[in-house]
Computed example of a mutant assay.
Amino acid sequence: MKTTGNTIFITGGTSGLGLGLALRWHALGNQVIIGGRRKELLDQIATEHPGIETVVLDVDDPASIQTAYDEVTTRFPDLNALLTMSGIMRPENLLDPGHLDTAEATITTNLLGTIRTIAAFTPYLVTRPDATILTVSSGLAFTPLALTATYNATKAAVHSYTQSLRLQLAGTGVQVIELVPPHVATTLMGMQDAPSAMPVEDFLTETMAILHDRPDVEEVTVQRVGFLRDAERENRLPEAIAALNSH
């Protein structure tokens, strides 16, 4: 992926890592468009960061995805990059039947939202030069946290879907990149002040460095996520699961 000269649409870009990446790309001179549910928040971001554009988008709603696609490709015909950042993370008690509501909401946002957005934008991106699709999984796709069972499962599915997408788009000119974040100090699960979490700015700096230094990268894995991402292939998965779930 080239780091400058892109027109990038970021779903779920109103906070956390999505907003952080938007600001980093914007600072490099890319045209950045942020998609999010709350128009007032989108308007605030656009006011505070002149040059960043916004589009109302609810990835839980297929009609909203189609409307956003129509708006983005009409207003920004040079679009050549898509980042599917939208996601939710909620605790679940699997012994409580009520957890199904959380499971279904998580699947709708994290997995179906990702697939539906990619399905909408891919036919356009395959016509564009230097096109890139970026998905977001998690270290928990590889080493699960028991408290967030469905979140882990959706991120494992995003990882597998991304691999299949890359294979199917081989030869089209569209690069497919998977971001694999570790535990980062964002508002997901209220972890913004967690001392064990990787600071957001540190994650952003290392991620942007990887994208700059390795333009052909398939998985963006900062050093901190290696404990989770590499546990199985390093034959230490039981130990990693035990350590992750001991707190």
Rank of each mutant, 00 (worst) to 15 (best):
182 P>A: 12
150 T>N: 04
24 R>W: 08
161 Y>R: 04
174 V>I: 08
119 A>W: 00
170 A>G: 14
70 D>V: 03
17 L>G: 00
29 G>T: 09
9 F>Q: 06
179 L>G: 10
66 Q>D: 14
74 T>I: 00
234 E>W: 11
4 T>G: 06
212 H>D: 10
31 Q>P: 01
36 G>S: 11
143 T>A: 08
48 E>P: 06
147 L>P: 00
21 L>M: 13
70 D>S: 12
134 L>H: 11
97 P>I: 03
102 T>L: 10
230 D>V: 04
88 I>R: 11
240 A>V: 12
21 L>H: 07
80 N>H: 04
1 M>H: 03
97 P>M: 02
9 F>R: 06
227 F>V: 13
41 L>G: 00
216 D>A: 12
73 T>H: 01
71 E>S: 12
57 L>C: 10
159 H>K: 11
76 F>A: 01
24 R>E: 15
113 G>L: 03
185 A>Q: 13
158 V>H: 00
218 E>A: 15
242 A>V: 02
92 E>Y: 11
184 V>F: 03
155 K>S: 06
106 T>F: 07
167 L>R: 14
82 L>I: 07
66 Q>H: 09
76 F>Q: 03
106 T>D: 05
107 I>R: 09
157 A>T: 04
113 G>T: 02
105 A>L: 13
181 P>I: 06
244 L>C: 08
50 P>L: 07
202 D>T: 15
128 R>W: 06
93 N>Q: 08
119 A>D: 14
212 H>Y: 00
179 L>K: 07
105 A>P: 04
127 T>C: 09
243 A>Y: 13
117 T>C: 08
60 D>H: 05
132 T>Q: 09
47 T>R: 15
153 A>V: 03
52 I>Q: 03
